[in-house]
Design a binder for these strands. Structure first.
Lengths: 357, 357
DNA sequence: CTGTTAGCGCTTTCAG
DNA sequence: CTGAAAGCGCTAACAG
């Protein structure tokens, strides 16, 4: 395949300088005469020189590359995370290699090994449900790691995530403040990482309002269709909730389908609040009120912690939890038959008015 | 940062064999005794050896890595392309590094240079609108390249795409077959790669039916909002079309919004056919009829051509154009006031019944 | 079947 | 300020 690429040696010789000098030019090192520098650059241009980062990384023992492991990249939250991390990294002349685990622990492990073989300088990971093997591998290799989004109670590695319980508490208080009393929280499964915390926040807010008896938690299943099927009877029952709070993308999709099946109108018959915002929520009318993850800030913290670890590998693990704002749009309103009490509650100070992303 | 990783030399010495033998084990070379092999593997396991692919690539002059350049990865079409290409590559023990151009020619060029520095063995690219600089760079480096999806009339590189004109012809004939006569084709701009071909196919079908006078092509702009605003007056005019064919994701979103604004019902008041299928089209009721790109087949051809070029770099460029099936779902029906003529036309033989992805 | 050796392209001392 | 030389970890060629 393709003939040999031009090397820095050829560039140097064409420029009439030594190999070392040429190297210094490309690495912005001080101590190269202006004229030499100029000639090196010209020679490189003329020859179409592209430095071999394999050789550089091998010699330098750092690659200025970080690995980013996400379950998937179609999900708007992960996509934004990737995008922001990439922006920061590129601005610091780091590269990022993205790999996807597809929620499969084995694939995750295998992809991480590939990143390790590439000698990435650090790793940011949104782990799968059971990532113990992956974690062990990472610990063994003593490479800086930051866990993002799906954090467990006590992570060995530094972690960055939204404060899930606080976020659902906030959302629940929003619905309560509108006059709702019968609330349902819909999420796929509490076995997933953040889900338990989300349920907990919901229940805490209901308890604080003395409404624990009227709090319903629905776990209809992992798919959109299971959610639709599981939620539909609840929505059409006599004692149906007046508001539904969905704890994940899939749950939101499933509930929307169930609402259509039930022929209900949002927010007249039912209020809906979603966890995680989506780009495509904009096709829906009315616009869906949502808890939005501050992905840019999350990515910023992950980067900061990771690069700090490059300097000082043995610092204690930091654990960041950020508040997630509530974006009140059109799907949350007073319950049917009630007069809305638009008094703004203190708890709503994080609420943001809903400009679309 | 992190202490030195274990090398193949350490593995070899622990296993009591020579460096070369250890290397042969990891590369599956014949001629290693079963016992030696076993001991090497054990030593590697015990030491947590992870081969340094930088060193291997440097020495071997091939990295078993391909670069994949896409505008973006949130778009379902690109996402599927990436996914399929990755699946094939991994199954052949190749790695793929994905970079995103964000539709920015400069960023595209810069990202390609980074891939070149990593010495990828080949490149698959979905180019931006003006990728001449990128293209020149690639030609200079004589690296195998396949252009995917956004192909131009005469590409220097091998190319793989859908036959856009044929696809819109098929879609248009579907609408005509249902009895529609006043059709509008909505797309962002004909300056974009495939868009011109899509418009052409639409017009060709209308011309063939003797309806060129009633064919409308709308170019409302690049954004969803511009599309909504541009299309709305057309939908509410007295001589409104009875069916709309959207030529891109953005156009579809914009039209859906306009339809909602106009208070129209689909398909009772208006039929809608979309180019490109989306996962989230499933939230919409009724299900949107769409032209689906055969992403798996596209990826397969791209891979085949690329790897063929590894063997024989100078073979003439192949140009693949695949048919795109029409998935008739619920948004395309007979026009208002017409009796549907459900006679299946010959041209529909590519039509597939609409199972959701 | 196993061991030795040269060198991939680069960065980084260290002398000049 | 510049040049020569060593070596990062690995594979491939060749000698035993």
């Amino acid at each position: 395949m393709s003939q040999r690429k031009t090397t820095i040696r050829e560039v140097a010789s064409r420029a009439g300088v030594s190999l070392g000098t040429a190297s210094n030019v490309f690495n912005g090192k001080a101590g190269v005469g202006a004229e030499s520098r100029q000639r090196v650059l010209e020679a490189a241009e003329a020859l179409g020189f592209r430095p071999n980062s394999l050789a550089a990384g091998l010699r330098r023992q750092r690659t200025r590359t970080i690995g980013l492991v996400v379950p998937d990249v179609l999900n708007i939250v992960f996509n934004e995370l990737v995008e922001h991390l990439e922006n920061i990294a590129l601005s610091q002349s780091y590269e990022v290699i993205i790999v996807t685990s597809r929620e499969d622990p084995e694939r995750e492990h295998e992809r991480v090994r590939a990143l390790l073989s590439r000698r990435v300088d650090g790793l940011v990971i949104v782990p799968t449900r059971d990532w113990s093997a992956t974690e062990r591998e990472m610990r063994h290799h003593r490479i800086p790691v930051v866990v993002l989004d799906r954090v467990a109670a006590h992570d060995h590695f530094p972690s960055v995530a939204v404060d899930n319980a606080a976020a659902t508490r906030l959302g629940t208080e929003h619905l309560l403040g509108l006059g709702h009393r019968d609330l349902a929280f819909v999420i796929n499964s509490t076995r997933l990482w953040n889900s338990a915390a989300r349920v907990e926040g919901f229940l805490a807010a209901m308890r604080a309002a003395g409404l624990e008896k009227r709090a319903r938690v629905l776990l209809p299943g992992m798919t959109e269709e299971e959610t639709r099927a599981g939620v539909l009877p609840v929505l059409t029952a006599a004692n149906r909730p007046t508001a539904v709070f969905t704890g994940s993308n899939v749950a939101t999709l499933g509930v929307l389908r169930a609402v259509q099946d039930a022929g209900m109108a949002i927010p007249q018959d039912l209020s809906l609040l979603a966890f995680d915002d989506f780009a495509w929520l904009t096709v829906l009318r009315p616009f869906v009120s949502a808890i939005r993850q501050p992905t840019e800030a999350l990515a910023g913290h992950a980067w900061r912690i990771l690069t700090a670890a490059f300097e000082a590998p043995d610092r204690p693990a930091e654990h960041i939890r950020l508040p997630a704002p509530l974006i009140a749009r059109e799907t949350t309103a007073a319950p049917p038959g009630k007069v809305k009490a638009p008094r703004r509650m203190k708890a709503f100070k994080d609420t943001v008015d809903g400009a679309l992303p």
